Simulated assay, not measured.
Amino acid sequence: METAGSEPVNQPSRDEVGGKPRAAATATLKPERSSVVPPYWQRHERSSSKLSVNSVSDTTGKPRPILLEDHTDEGSEQCKALWAKHVTVDDYVIVSGTAPGLGAYVSWNCTVETLDGGPMKIMKRYSEFDTLRQQLCKTFPYADGAIPPLPPKSVISRFRPRFLERRKAGLSYFLNCILLNPEFAGSPVLKEFLFS
């Protein structure tokens, strides 16, 4: 007789052919203290919920198609906001301070290829990129995931060529994500960054 809180115990059963005892396949033993498996290691199978099915299907029960929008059309509202087609961070200049090692900084030379005119050249410091990102996050708090992080800072290797090359690639990626996003491209925050 089993108690309410007890675990089932392996009971020997008879093999049909040979009559030899074998362990029941469906019975389980209570695990020992050392063999406890964390819940995130166990296999997790997701059950289909009505909410998730309703969110991706229409009234016929078929999944809704993914809608693509063409923002290259001249009449598109999104196209009107876009004015840049490509941004590159070309190179950098290390500007030395008044005393050796004090006040030195890196200035980044950027080229913005516009849709209607020629290229636009700007020079910015890393701190200006950081200010731009902070202001974009304040202006567009719901779009925080669309604003990529800036490359990390380093006090020790901030003037080393290898570090600066990685930072250059990161800043180029950041600017492309911002300038080629129609929502950010027309914002006063970005215009202030580019034209100040």
Rank of each mutant, 00 (worst) to 15 (best):
Trp41Asp: 15
Gly117Asn: 02
Leu194Val: 07
Glu69Ile: 00
Leu68Tyr: 09
Glu74Phe: 08
Arg133Ser: 01
Val56Met: 07
Leu82Arg: 03
Ser187His: 03
Phe193Asn: 00
Arg162Phe: 10
Arg46Tyr: 10
Lys85Val: 08
Arg22Ile: 06
Leu164Pro: 03
Arg160His: 12
Pro161Leu: 15
Phe193Arg: 02
Leu171Gln: 02
Gln135Ile: 07
Ala81Asn: 14
Pro151Asp: 08
Asn176Gly: 02
Phe140Asp: 09
Ser47Pro: 08
Ser47Thr: 13
Lys85Trp: 03
Trp108Arg: 01
Val17Met: 02
Phe159Asn: 01
Gln134Thr: 05
Ser47Ile: 13
Pro21Val: 07
Glu192Leu: 09
Ala81Val: 08
Asp130Arg: 13
Arg160Glu: 14
Pro31Asn: 09
Phe159Met: 00
Gly101Phe: 02
Thr88Phe: 13
Ala81Cys: 14
Tyr126Asp: 05
Ser52Trp: 00
Pro39Ser: 13
Gly118Gln: 05
Gly103Val: 05
Ile94Met: 06
Lys153Ala: 11
Gly117Tyr: 08
Thr98Asn: 03
Glu77Cys: 11
Thr88Ile: 12
Leu82His: 09
Arg125Ser: 09
Glu77Asp: 11
Cys110Thr: 12
Ser96Met: 04
Arg158Lys: 15
Glu45Trp: 13
Val95Arg: 12
Ile147Leu: 09
Ile147Asn: 04
Ile178Met: 15
Arg167His: 09
Pro119Met: 11
Ala23Val: 04
Glu128Phe: 06
Gly97Pro: 01
Pro152Gln: 07
His71Asn: 11
Pro31Ala: 04
Lys153Arg: 14
Val87Cys: 14
Ile156His: 01
Thr111Glu: 06
Ala104Tyr: 07
Ser172Arg: 14
Met123Val: 15
Asp144Trp: 04
Cys79Phe: 15
Lys121Gly: 09
Thr98Cys: 08
Tyr142Met: 14
Arg160Tyr: 07
Pro38Ser: 00
Leu29Pro: 00
Thr88Asp: 13
Glu45Ala: 14
Ser6Pro: 00
Asn181Gly: 06
Val93Gly: 11
Ala143Gly: 10
Val36Met: 15
Ala143Val: 00
Lys153Trp: 04
Ala185Tyr: 02
Thr3Pro: 14
Glu32Trp: 09
Val95Asn: 08
Ala143Glu: 08
Ser76Arg: 01
Gly97Leu: 04
Leu115His: 02
Glu113Ile: 06
Gly61Asn: 04
Thr28Tyr: 10
Asn181Phe: 00
Lys138Ala: 15
Ser154Arg: 06
Cys79Leu: 11
Pro182Met: 05
Val36His: 03
Ala84Glu: 01
Val89Lys: 08
Lys20Trp: 08
Ser13Gln: 11
Lys85Met: 08
Ala185Met: 01
Tyr40Met: 15
Cys177Pro: 06
Pro12Phe: 09
Val37Tyr: 06
Ala169Asp: 10
Ser34Met: 10
Ala23Tyr: 05
Lys85Arg: 10
Pro65Ile: 02
Val53Trp: 00
Phe184Asn: 08
Pro65Gln: 00
Ala169Arg: 11
Thr114Leu: 12
Gly118Ser: 14
Pro188Lys: 10
Asp73Arg: 09
Ser127Gln: 14
Ser34Tyr: 09
Asn176Tyr: 03
Pro161Ile: 15
